[in-house]
Design a binder for these strands. Structure first.
Lengths: 229, 229
DNA sequence: CGAAACTTTGATCTCTGTCAAGATTAGTGG
DNA sequence: CCACTAATCTTGACAGAGATCAAAGTTTCG
């Protein structure tokens, strides 16, 4: 069911079965291989992508090469706002990726044909905004350790909602991606992983971690900015 | 005209005169004095506020007292998302403030009665999201000097759009507010102001600055995250 | 006028960034 | 399948920007 495919948009609300079928009819599947750029900031956004399988990083670049990763996207997420004319950030595939591709015009037409879908879109964007503002809190304050710990817990929780881990939390993205997400350098991320492991808060494995003692120790005393998409 | 009162929502689009009058009819004016809290994070958002006069800071708190200022709001801005049930951040008056107060239910009803208004709301939230993501870039990277300079230029430009300055850019917020907005300590903000003044980039006056050489020097080489609301 | 709040400035310390060298992993072609 | 190269990750040494602690100067407001 499409509701399962795009929970980010059709989140917790009754959606008309007919509308769902319409929606599904507009999608064409498309693949990107590891590291490929799906779209770049500033480009015309004639196509809107929904993520079916795999992981995507969204980011903005400064001309001097510095990069801010704005979000990591999971299966079920949309990669951009349907109504935006231009892409406000770039998107890369992390590993092999399967997307559902929509014509922007068709999608807008469908959405605007239904007050129900428009409401859903408003709520969707509002959730994204709230997420971004929580990330502001994370970026603005906190030590490297707090940032990394908070990132790991948030990531674990998002994956949990998709039942995508078992003891070992997969980390498909590179250290550099995590660093650019948290406003740190990749060496700092690496060192922080090592320190957390020494303190038995996590166990680092190839392309993943086990969170052994994070939730109790550091994070309960903090506001947990847990993504709720 | 209301279009002038709430440009953030009715931005650059033709709005039906009838809808505008409806909208205006729902508003009741209300005042808050300097420093007063308008609403707090987590509260039920039965009332939605539009800002008519004065300045407001929106912020999130950690339980240990750390604070992230999420945005400074200017006349014409909405302080929250109409459809959100709970407030996702707190809001304080900076100086004396005049607000237009709407019943959330009435406002939602009005907006959802008109596809046109719903479209406007979607675009409004999308702009806010884009702003937040640009601020992520600012918070994540950049020295104290870049952050402060970028903040000043962005603030100047927003005020310029409202014709609210003349040579001297007013800074109604406290140093602490700027610090919490930029993820710095207030001492660092103060020192950075002093350094920029020594370099003749700005001139600091009571509750304001003159930007004498900022745009040319530092900022052109960067992507300018200029708020465009 | 005087107290409280805010801002500036100074001295010191610490965490993270920077530079650099190994270690590990992934990818490629023979 | 192995060997070799490139990319990524870890670890170390060092330096510097910003945090912290502290005090003096300024503005605000009763």
């Amino acid at each position: 069911m499409l509701r399962a495919l795009f929970p980010a948009l059709f989140c917790g609300t009754a959606v008309d079965a007919y509308e769902l079928r319409e929606f599904q009819g507009l999608a064409t599947p498309v693949q990107f291989s590891a590291g490929k750029t799906i779209f770049s900031e500033g480009e015309q956004a004639n196509i809107v992508f929904g993520l079916s399988q795999g992981f995507v990083r969204l980011y903005k670049l400064l001309i001097d090469g510095r990069r801010q990763v704005v979000a990591f996207k999971l299966p079920g997420d949309f990669l951009a706002m349907p109504r935006a004319e231009l892409h406000k950030f770039s998107a890369d595939a992390i590993g092999e990726v399967t997307l559902s591709q929509f014509s922007r015009n068709d999608l807008i037409e469908l959405i605007e044909s239904s007050p129900n879908l428009m409401r859903l879109l408003i709520d969707f964007v509002s959730r994204e905004l709230d997420l971004a503002q929580d990330q502001l809190l994370l970026l603005g304050h906190g030590s490297a350790e707090e940032k990394v710990a908070m990132f790991l817990v948030g990531w674990r929780n998002r994956l949990a909602r998709l039942s995508m881990f078992s003891e070992i939390v997969p980390l498909p993205m590179r250290r550099r991606d995590i660093a650019d997400f948290l406003g740190l350098k990749l060496e700092t991320v690496s060192r922080t992983f090592a320190r957390l492991e020494r303190n038995h808060a996590i166990r680092v494995v190839s392309k993943g971690v086990a969170l052994t003692g994070l939730d109790q120790s550091l994070l309960v005393k903090e506001r947990i900015c847990e993504p709720h998409v």
